[in-house]
């Protein structure tokens, strides 16, 4: 069977299209690459969706945590502490249990026990907490002069936030937020590994990698392929976020731009 044929058969296998049965014997490298790559669709889906929705909650959490109002501050602090303080592994476990028990009395929650929704919710809450903390740190380091200048122009409330505080916060937080993005994509491998069941052998990249490792009893081929895909994905993320970073910093003089990048580029 040619490699092109394999790609046609298994390229979208993780979504349920193509050949129903997975290969069973005589595994080729092409099959490895195709199926693990097909699984990457899920990793990318989880990562992208969680980052996009999480961005808004993260902003809200950061503003809440920086707020002077106790009723806004305390819940934000607790939320961030709970999700940053416990392993994602355990969060997945509890979420699955919780969704199961919700489902029994209310059938409308049916979809929550499937990975595409349930795991997405957990990842979304998790990344919101981390990004919230990053944004909160950035909010606190906004130069006082910027805010005073906004005040002097007579900006208040929403317009001051939207036009001054928010863009500055993003600019300061961006390098750390890039790191967070890398982490989120990496944590998507946990979804089928420990938490949510895989239906009809539709799983993520790690699911297929361990399928091969289990069938060939050789971990040294599938896992490095998985690693290769993730390094590729990381490069794309770094490139994409770097583009946005450039745009966020476009008004700054050249020499301050590079400095900013390294000073804040600290791990999650």
């Amino acid at each position: 069977m040619s490699c092109l044929q394999t790609i046609q058969d298994y390229g979208l296998r993780s979504l349920g299209f193509g050949e129903r049965l997975l290969p069973k014997t005589d595994f080729t490298l092409c099959e490895h690459f195709t199926l693990i790559g097909s699984g990457m669709i899920w990793n990318i889906y989880f990562g992208v969706m969680a980052m996009i929705i999480g961005f808004f909650l993260a902003t809200a959490l950061a503003v809440g945590k920086a707020s002077a109002n106790k009723w806004l501050r305390k819940p934000s602090e607790w939320f961030i502490f709970l999700f940053r303080g416990s392993p994602l592994f355990i969060q997945f476990f509890f979420a699955y249990f919780f969704f199961l028990s919700l489902k029994k009395p209310y059938p409308m929650f049916d979809a929550f026990t499937s990975a595409w929704l349930g795991a997405l919710i957990v990842l979304f809450l998790n990344t919101s907490a981390y990004a919230g903390e990053i944004f909160y740190g950035a909010l606190r380091s906004i130069p006082k002069g910027d805010i005073e200048a906004a005040d002097a122009y007579g900006m208040t409330g929403w317009s001051r936030f939207r036009r001054i505080i928010w863009p500055t916060m993003l600019r300061l937080a961006w390098p750390a937020y890039t790191n967070e993005a890398i982490f989120v994509f990496q944590s998507t491998t946990l979804v089928f590994f420990s938490a949510f069941p895989a239906w009809q052998q539709r799983g993520d990249a790690l699911y297929y990698a361990s399928y091969f490792a289990d069938k060939t009893f050789n971990p040294f081929v599938p896992y490095p392929i998985l690693a290769f895909y993730f390094i590729l994905l990381t490069l794309v993320i770094v490139w994409g976020f770097g583009r946005i970073n450039k745009r966020l910093n476009r008004h700054l003089p050249e020499e301050r731009k590079t400095k900013m990048r390294f000073r804040l580029n600290l791990a999650r």
Binding site: T189, S210, Y223, A227
Partner: peptide, 10 residues
């Protein structure tokens, strides 16, 4: 760039 699980597995 590599998820730690993938690393640990082999």
């Amino acid at each position: 760039g590599v998820p730690d699980i993938a690393f640990f597995l082999f």
